[in-house]
Amino acid sequence: MHATVGLIGAGGIANAHLPAWLDLGYDVAVYSTADDADALIGRHGGGRAVHSLDELFDAADVVDICTPTHTHYELALAALGHALPTVCEKPLTRTLDEAEDLVARFAAAGVPLFPAHVVRYFPEYVELRRAVARGDIGRVAVQRHTRQGRSPRNGWYLDEPLSGGVLLDLMIHDIDIARWVGGEVARVFARTNVVDGSQSTQAFLTHLGGSISVLTATWTTAPIDFRTSFEVAGSDGLLHGDSDERRPFRYQGKAEPEADILPDFSPLTSPYRAELGDFLDSIASGLAPRVTARDGLEAMRIADAVARSAVSGLPIDLELTS
């Protein structure tokens, strides 16, 4: 008998998670309130639809939450009520208070909680982290990370109280990477500009060790491709990456409207498969995965400071936690 994943949600990001679970050899039970589970299953050739959360929890050995941001907290608590190891798409929750409570509850119960910060599994970012850890560029001084894409067309994304806007959709990835590479963050200063359906946030992070990270995240109504880039400068050199300079896989054909929010990646080397496999390995071994629940919480803590700074126009000092 195969182990079963209970996949909650059948929208955009589920198009990356479902095929990864199938490739890892799992049966997948899919539940969605939007009546799109059958379409997701048909698109990827595997899985089965269930008709309630209770049915999903009864079938599942692991839960994977791929739903709108504002639903993460309650769904994760429901999974915890069944003592099920849980993957939760980024951001971990909509608010910092929810994230703190969720992480504390899972830790107290001894149930694994995995925030799906997939960028840590993209090869260029893996190599970035390795190169910095090896000392290839000496002491890191400045990081610059950019992430841009078309403004979402889905209503809940554009409702900032529900989604958190471009900050929690795009920038949270680079918040996590900047902290992964540069260490804990002590101070944040940020600005946000909104013009009609376009939105851009820029944040300046001062790390505890003295280095600085400059992050820019943009949603735009202009007809642009999804793009990411980074430059990390140190005392002995510079590391550079740009998704426009090397695309190992390119798809041409009919666009899938629910899947086109995803960046290009090869199905043969899916970072989504890598992150889910890492979570499974951590459950089996008892060792920490590459992304821990605390990492998800700290990304939310920094994002919360970015949001508050953008509103107040003032820098925000963070209280560092152990």
Rank of each mutant, 00 (worst) to 15 (best):
A3Y: 15
A107T: 13
H145T: 00
E319F: 06
A133N: 09
G165C: 09
D169S: 15
Q148L: 14
L77M: 15
P257H: 09
L215A: 04
D64K: 00
R120V: 10
Y157N: 08
D36F: 02
H17Q: 14
Q252T: 14
Y157A: 13
I224L: 04
A307P: 05
I224A: 04
D304N: 07
A20D: 02
D136I: 00
M300D: 00
R191G: 09
V181Q: 03
V119H: 09
R139A: 14
E256N: 14
E258K: 12
W180P: 00
P271W: 11
A288S: 12
G182K: 01
F265C: 00
T86A: 05
A10M: 05
L268F: 15
V50N: 06
I302H: 03
D101G: 08
A49Y: 04
F230S: 12
V195A: 13
I13C: 03
L239T: 09
S229M: 09
D36C: 09
T95F: 06
I175E: 04
H145R: 10
I261D: 01
Y121I: 10
L56G: 00
L276M: 15
P115T: 10
R48D: 03
V28G: 01
E74W: 03
A79E: 08
A133G: 08
H51E: 13
P152T: 01
H72D: 01
P223S: 11
A60W: 11
D295E: 02
G164S: 04
T71K: 11
V118P: 02
A14E: 12
G47N: 07
D27L: 00
A186K: 08
L268I: 02
R191E: 15
D27G: 04
R301P: 00
N15E: 01
A255T: 12
L320C: 10
L18W: 11
V142A: 07
P68H: 12
K90A: 02
Y157C: 13
H117S: 04
D264A: 15
Y31A: 02
G313S: 07
H207S: 06
P263Q: 07
S312Q: 12
S235N: 00
S282P: 07
I316L: 06
L22S: 12
E100K: 11
V214G: 00
D54S: 13
D281K: 13
E127A: 09
A83M: 08
F122Q: 00
E98H: 15
T95E: 10
L162H: 01
S213N: 01
A217D: 01
T146K: 02
V63E: 07
D23A: 15
R144H: 14
S312A: 15
V311N: 04
H72S: 05
